[in-house]
């Protein structure tokens, strides 16, 4: 626990030690706002909800979360600090968790800075704040799932560009798998069980369910197991990669 905390602090600090954190935050917030206002028609809809705002989160995460996760392990491989880190008296799992939690906390901080959106709808109308809170929780948990995938992939390469592109692609597949466009392709030939499985693997369907204001245990279990699976794979990836 103590080791996880040390790794967590170091990792989170390293985001802010360079301009990366600030550049990321500015772009994240600008895009969030732009998508909600211009593309989503936040004002035009005339409703006191943040639905149009949360609607674009999966798509924005697709682009930006791999940018947070790409350096987690790839940079350690590149600079050789992996050798330093893994010869300190810590377990691989502690290192993986510490790094993941730091990246997740960073994403959480960025998400937290969207609070003016929440203030705005409360000034302009009387939104259902319960739904908004549930959506924030859902968005945060989804960010965690994107990050776990990205972190695992980052552990397999020392090239950050590769880590970014592969992570974005895998996240894209996970996001897209719930869309009719994709499902229709499978409907032609696949059994219903498979289609349901594919649809149930989708970030979109689970996230949309949460943004409707219902935090269903199944949605949370889905994201939690996804995160656990990829972190587990992450530990294996780190151990595998350092031996080569």
């Amino acid at each position: 626990m103590r080791n996880i905390n040390s790794i967590f602090k170091r990792e989170l600090m390293s985001y802010f030690a360079t301009p990366v954190a600030y550049v990321f935050m500015v772009i994240f917030l600008a895009l969030m706002g732009a998508l909600a206002f211009y593309v989503g028609g936040f004002f035009v809809s005339g409703q006191a909800t943040l639905l149009t705002f949360f609607f674009y989160h999966p798509w924005l995460y697709l682009l930006l979360i791999p940018a947070i996760s790409m350096r987690l392990w790839a940079e350690e491989h590149k600079t050789g600090t992996i050798e330093l880190l893994m010869t300190l008296p810590i377990s691989t799992a502690e290192a993986v968790l510490g790094k993941f939690l730091a990246a997740w906390a960073f994403a959480g901080i960025a998400l937290g800075f969207t609070f003016p959106m929440w203030i705005s709808v409360n000034i302009l109308g009387t939104p259902d704040n319960g739904v908004i809170l549930a959506s924030y929780v859902g968005s945060f948990v989804m960010a965690g799932a994107f990050l776990a995938i990205g972190s695992c992939i980052s552990a397999l390469t020392k090239n950050q560009v590769i880590a970014f592109i592969v992570a974005a692609t895998v996240c894209f597949l996970f996001t897209m798998s719930g869309l009719e466009l994709v499902l229709n392709f499978f409907r032609l030939w696949a059994p219903d069980v498979l289609i349901d499985t594919i649809a149930s693997m989708s970030f979109l369907s689970h996230f949309r369910a949460i943004t409707k204001g219902v935090i269903d245990l199944r949605d949370i279990v889905y994201f939690a197991s996804l995160i656990s699976f990829f972190l587990f794979a992450n530990v294996a990836a780190v151990d595998f990669k350092k031996g080569t």
Partner: peptide
Amino acid sequence: LAKSRIGYLPEGAPTYGDM
């Protein structure tokens, strides 16, 4: 436990440059 008994300077002395 073994690692806690060892001080190790890896080849090229890698350190976290941003710290």
